[in-house]
Design a protein around this nucleic acid. Structure first.
Length: 454
RNA sequence: GUGGCUAUAGUUCAGUUGGUUAGAACGCCAGAUUGUGGCUCUGGAGGUCGUCGGUUCGAGUCCGAUUAGCCACCCCA
């Protein structure tokens, strides 16, 4: 049997690979306007980083990580032995932990420095059961702003993400922006206790899973889809009523900034992120149409304690990630037309094999001038070559045949207007030789046309 | 990790109660007189029916296993 891609992975075929490149470029452009610069961190890190950063009890860390073992270490483990911490590696399940680790390691935010604004794009890995909008290897674009705790960072990040979604073509009316504040380590423990007591008082109305959650992580019960639990939790204490003064002010200012920029959002006291590092502001962007049950295309929040957690000095941070594949689903649902990857400016057609050497040389000359040019490589009929040119969406077809060769010319056909004219082969090559080996950004067609009229 | 559904040409799918050389559409290739695309017409190529095993005189069709996909739970982007 032919081998196939592993469960939950997907090949990005040319059309989509090209779109992914465009997607990243658009993100770099939009985020660049907000001062973000790129960073690339390893696809795997010490398992310990994720355990400490994301949280040992989170689903992501406790059951969804791909752990990597190199060479002999596997034998050691299978033999019941132990390996050093630095040899325990995991494929990154998300991007924030690695970036914060790099910031700490290279001291990218020295004391008193301006915040570091970093962006990344690449694959993440989680050993989950695949479904619509969920793969085991998937691509994320994310940003992290470290070194500033002002609410303006939260607000501009959220605004920036919405601007990106608009720029890439997701209809504004199909998106829902949810925001919440999770408090800090001053107010959250008290709130957590309040929720736990509330849940204990209503234990007989909760599902088994939620009874367990009451002990381990009561806030997660807000996410339970069980209708009984949802009814109970709807009346549970709300975090927004339990924030400390500083957190309430912070959250209030974030909302003021958002309102001031005309961004519509919904406050959702039940929005609880599943990663332990979040503090204060958290948010999520959902798409309402065509997404299946994985409808969050982006989300993130503030993590003021994470840098310390991985061994750095106290450095407040804010970041978000967005899922490329989910954005593609949202775009498909919105009827977005993805551009074809393969196309060309010029197609050089050969009437018969006698002109192939001359055609070959012309094609290379045009490519050297920065044009995208293709020719037939299968000795197809002239008619077929035109069909191919049409399929490649060529603007012009240059026909080279025995007649042209004898006259020292080529025939140029504009595929859109059907207009044809002749130009000297030498004149054309001389025109091409004036341009360097870089993308051509002029109107070569009209230059060629006017050269033919001299 | 749990549950449900699915697997037939490159793609989307038909395939009657198990019965001869497995079909369609689109796509692909080639023609429709002499060197020219998109539309139309004609013809052609392409499938050991996901894989392995079983039941049967006979399996695309029934059973089991396996692999993968989809959907949901869970969780997250």
């Amino acid at each position: 049997m032919a081998l196939q891609a592993p469960e939950g992975t997907k090949d990005l075929l040319p059309d989509e690979s090209k779109f992914w490149t465009y997607f990243k470029a658009t993100a770099a452009e939009v985020f660049g306007r907000f001062g973000y610069v790129p960073i690339e961190t390893p696809l795997f890190e010490q398992t310990d980083l994720f355990v400490r950063g994301i949280g040992e009890a989170t689903d992501v860390v406790s059951k969804e990580m791909f752990t990597a073992v190199s060479g002999q270490n596997l034998e050691t483990l299978l033999g019941g032995g132990t390996i050093k911490a630095k040899s325990r590696l995991s494929l990154r399940p998300e991007g924030t932990a690695g970036v914060v680790r790099a910031v700490v390691q290279h001291d990218l935010v020295p004391q008193g420095a301006a915040p570091a604004k970093l962006m990344y794009a690449g694959p993440m890995f989680r050993a989950e059961r695949p479904q619509r909008g969920r793969q085991r290897q998937f691509n994320q674009v994310g940003v992290e702003c470290l070194g500033a705790e002002d609410p303006s960072v939260d607000a501009e990040s959220i605004i920036m993400l919405m601007r990106f979604f608009e720029a890439i073509g997701i209809p504004v009316e199909s998106m829902r922006l949810l925001v919440n504040s999770m408090g800090c380590d001053v107010c959250r423990p008290a709130y957590r206790d309040a929720v736990r007591s509330y849940m204990d008082a209503h234990a007989d109305e909760l599902c088994d899973e939620c009874k367990r959650r009451a002990e381990t992580n009561p806030l997660r019960a807000f996410d339970c889809k069980n209708s009984g639990c949802a009814a109970v939790m709807a009346h549970a204490p709300k975090i927004t009523d339990h924030l400390c003064g500083d957190c309430r002010d912070h959250y209030g200012t974030v909302k003021q900034y958002l309102v001031g920029e005309g961004l519509s959002f919904e406050e959702d006291p039940k929005l609880v992120r599943g990663l332990d590092y979040y503090t204060r502001t958290v948010f999520e962007v959902q798409v309402t149409e065509g997404m299946g049950s994985q409808n969050a295309i982006g989300g993130g929040g503030r993590y003021d304690k994470l840098a310390e957690e991985v061994g750095g000095r106290p450095t407040p941070g804010f970041g978000f990630a967005l899922g490329y594949e989910r954005c593609v689903i949202a775009l498909e649902a919105a009827g977005y037309e993805f551009p074809r990857a393969q196309r060309c400016d010029y197609f050089v057609a050969c009437v018969d094999d006698s002109v192939r050497p001359e055609a070959f040389s012309l094609v290379q000359a045009a490519r050297n001038a920065g044009l995208t040019v293709e020719m037939d490589h299968q000795h197809r009929s002239l008619k077929s070559q035109f069909k191919l040119a049409d399929k490649l969406d060529a603007d012009q077809v240059i026909v080279l045949g025995p007649d042209e060769l004898a006259a020292g010319t080529v025939t140029v056909r504009n595929m859109a207007t059907h207009e044809e004219y002749a130009i000297g082969l030498a004149a054309m090559k001389s025109l091409l030789s004036r341009f360097g080996n870089q993308p051509f950004d002029g109107d070569f067609s009209s230059m060629l046309k006017s050269a033919s009229e001299e």
